[in-house]
């Protein structure tokens, strides 16, 4: 009977413990981090890698909730609908802007308060290492000569798909864009010579680029990056295209300022300490912190770019 009482007691604590003590300093209980994709994707790994560091600084545990479905739409909708009390946050990425641009969801990026951008990576167009297209010009030349260049992307209507359309538009050529279900399938199709090129995020391509099975032709950063040595940008090749895959921490609109500052301080501390650098580099991403107004401006600009690029794709 004592045991039973103990269990009951535990149950009560678990059920009601969280609601007391609102007055104390944030955070007073564990914080939910919604990852709008299944475990194992880039969005999931970036938060999980940060989890121990964040927990140490916040003094509370961070609970990662994978709420997947609809290409991120389900988890993001859930985040929008939750209370902006700082106990439900979202691992955001440009997938949010993609969904918005494709017109599939009821929310926009304006329904969120962005806390910090953490990492980013460029979109990379790559072709087979021993294939005929060793640089961007060769590929574009062939396309202009009337060859239907087959470009694989991961997922129809995905951000990579939009990026590929944007690349075709800015360079003024036509690609035969072939959507694959995921990055792995796209890469293996390119390595097997079934398609001519791929457009993917840099992190997905990292290991195949290192093994030289695929060669990066160009990428969408404004400037060259240490993470992809020797890869030219579209800008320096004379095409005005700037897009990044970014990952950030966001909250539903209306987050109290002190909560926001607690988080900004924690993330700043982690990124400044250099603790996260190696992990980010190993994952093929660049630490690119951005906070406050600069971040809001960045998100706004990305949204505009995505909307323009998606233009003809969105129906």
């Amino acid at each position: 009977m004592k045991k039973l009482l103990g269990t009951l007691g535990l149950a009560t604590t678990l059920m009601f413990g969280g609601q007391a003590a609102l007055a104390a300093e944030y955070p007073t209980k564990s914080v939910d981090m919604i990852v709008p994709f299944s475990a194992g994707g880039g969005n999931d790994t970036f938060v999980r890698a940060m989890q121990p560091m964040l927990e140490k600084r916040l003094g509370q545990s961070l609970v990662i909730r994978n709420i997947a479905g609809g290409g991120g739409a389900v988890g993001m909708s859930r985040a929008v609908a939750s209370r902006p009390d700082g106990y439900t946050l979202l691992a955001a990425s440009n997938a949010m802007l993609t969904l918005e641009a494709m017109g599939n969801v009821a929310f926009t990026h304006n329904d969120f308060d962005f806390i910090a951008k953490v990492v980013e990576e460029p979109y990379v167009i790559a072709a087979r290492g021993d294939g005929p297209y060793q640089d961007l010009d060769a590929l574009l030349e062939a396309a202009r000569a009337g060859k239907a260049i087959k470009v694989g992307v991961s997922g129809v209507g995905s951000s990579a798909h939009i990026a590929a359309v944007a690349m075709a538009n800015t360079t003024g050529v036509k690609f035969n864009i072939i959507p694959y279900p995921g990055g792995a399938e796209t890469i293996s199709a390119a390595m097997g010579g079934h398609i001519d090129a791929v457009v993917l995020g840099g992190s997905e391509l990292r290991s195949v680029l290192q093994s030289e099975r695929l060669k990066a032709l160009a990428m969408t950063y404004d400037e060259r990056s240490d993470s992809l040595p020797g890869v030219p940008t579209f800008k320096e090749e004379g095409h005005d295209l700037s897009l990044t895959v970014w990952r950030a921490i966001a909250a539903p609109k209306g987050l109290p300022e002190d909560v926001k500052q607690t988080w900004v301080a924690a993330i700043k501390d982690i990124l400044d300490s250099g603790e996260y650098d190696q992990t980010a580099a190993n994952l093929g991403t660049d630490v690119a912190p951005l906070y406050g107004e600069a971040l809001d401006e960045f998100i706004e600009n990305s949204a505009v770019t995505m909307n323009e690029a998606a233009g003809e794709l969105a129906r």
């Binding site: 299944s38 475990a39 194992g40 994707g41 790994t45 890698a49 792995a184 890469i187 293996s188 390595m191 990292r206 290991s207 195949v208 290192q210 093994s211 099975r213 190696q278 992990t279 190993n282 994952l283 093929g284």
Partner: peptide
């Protein structure tokens, strides 16, 4: 051998390899 995970579980494992600084591939 290629850095291409066939399904979800090996995709997570690949993430683990990369974080450890091991780059899959013929090398």
């Amino acid at each position: 051998a290629l850095g291409i995970p066939g399904e979800a579980a090996t995709a997570v494992l690949l993430g683990g390899l990369l974080i450890q600084g091991i780059t899959p591939g013929p090398m």
